[in-house]
C-alpha cells in the first residue's frame, strides 16, 4: 500500500481540532455566541476531542509503519 490513509486522516483532524480549539479559546467569553449551543462552548470541547482523535489516528499510523516499514 503506497499511502497509509491513517496519516492524512490523523493530520486533517489534528488541524481541524486545533482550529476549533483556538476558535473556542478566543471566543470563550462570548456568551451570546454560545447561547445557540445551549450555553456550551462546543468549539472548545469538540475541538479538543477532534485533536485527540487525530492524535490517536496518527499514533496508529506510526505504529503500523514501525511494524511493516
Amino acid at each position: 500500500m503506497g499511502l497509509d490513509i491513517r496519516f492524512p486522516i490523523g493530520m486533517m483532524f489534528t488541524l481541524l481540532g486545533l482550529i476549533l480549539l483556538a476558535t473556542g479559546f478566543f471566543t470563550s467569553g462570548d456568551a451570546a455566541m454560545y447561547q445557540q449551543s445551549l450555553g456550551l462552548n462546543v468549539n472548545l470541547w469538540w475541538g479538543g476531542f477532534l485533536l485527540l482523535f487525530g492524535g490517536v489516528m496518527w499514533g496508529f499510523a506510526i505504529l503500523g509503519k514501525n511494524k511493516n516499514p
Binding site: 471566543t27 449551543s37 445551549l38
Partner: peptide, 11 residues
C-alpha cells in the same frame, strides 16, 4: 443552523 455557532457550523 439552530445549534452550531461559527466553527462547529463549518464542521
Amino acid at each position: 443552523k439552530r445549534y452550531c455557532p461559527t466553527g462547529m457550523l463549518g464542521l
